[in-house]
Design a protein around this nucleic acid. Structure first.
Lengths: 153, 153
DNA sequence: TTAAAACCTCAAGTTAAGTTAAGGTCAATA
DNA sequence: TATTGACCTTAACTTAACTTGAGGTTTTAA
């Protein structure tokens, strides 16, 4: 039995192991912990130990980031996971639904933008006065992304 | 004739006017200038004056940012505009083509991600070992966006 | 002409998401 | 047992894209 297997079966992952498995740096794990995104307990020597489901948490965090979701938002969504028990498929599934909606909105926003860039910057009509690219009401659903296209007050 | 009209016809826009018309702060215009994104000349009293096409430049910068393009990239692309003359429709059109490609890639990336989140986080298969979400080779075409989905070294 | 509004420069502050470094402790192994 | 590698904390640094503030000048308008 290797050390890693031993650790795994004991559900006692070290920070170095988690870092390696998840592809993030140890310092990032510390950082996530200070931000309340993941949790650990300490052994006798004050070293961090993790439950294996931290790996999925990190995977989800990374996936969410790739979708353009901020850590603050991720934190809030992760907070909807059950605290007492290890999250189930169903729990994770609920999370992914929340983000799918956001992702769909983001994709839709990009596509609108794509059309506009196409028809607007390209054609030369881009005047501050008449160009539809200045339509104030075009937001992304959320506001964490510099979402207002242009606000021409 | 109002003051603003006078300024416009003289092609001598003040920083405050440009700020108001473009919806960005004066400090942002200063900032853009230090970054080489826009240019101005000075009047006798050392105040900035702009040509009207600065408005389109700013519009383009903002549109590019909404596409997820960094100011550094915007700068490089804007540098392909002619230096001597006021850019024409055709010049702007060429710019928009460059960004459309990037935007298309970004949209495609989001859609791939969307599918994966769908099939992957949702279904509960997200294990560090087998999950396709860990496919190392899935990048966005560029690298300015935290583009690697997950790197599981 | 004089006060307010607009402008100037330069330095420092801000937020997100981490990273790096320093100085010290703990744990695994030859 | 001794050494090396893994960990610990705290503080400061990093980048992007701006914003804020201080202290001083120029323009505009009554």
């Amino acid at each position: 039995m290797t050390v890693q297997q031993k650790k795994l079966t004991e559900a006692n992952l070290t920070v170095g192991y988690v870092a390696k498995r998840s592809g993030v740096k140890v310092s990032t794990l510390h950082f996530y912990e200070t931000k309340g995104l993941i949790r650990s307990w300490r052994n006798n020597g004050n070293q961090r130990r993790y439950k294996p489901d931290v790996l999925r948490r990190i995977a989800v965090i990374k996936a969410a980031q790739a979708m353009g979701i901020t850590l603050e938002e991720v934190k809030q969504t992760l907070a909807t996971l059950p605290d007492e028990r290890t999250p189930t498929k169903k729990d994770w599934s609920a999370l992914s639904k929340q983000w799918q909606t956001q992702l769909d909105q983001r994709i839709a926003f990009m596509q609108r933008l794509r059309e506009r860039v196409d028809g607007c910057i390209g054609c030369g009509c881009l005047s501050m006065d008449k160009c539809p690219i200045y339509n104030k009401d075009d937001y992304l659903g959320e506001d964490q992304s510099g979402a207002v296209l242009l606000n021409n007050s």
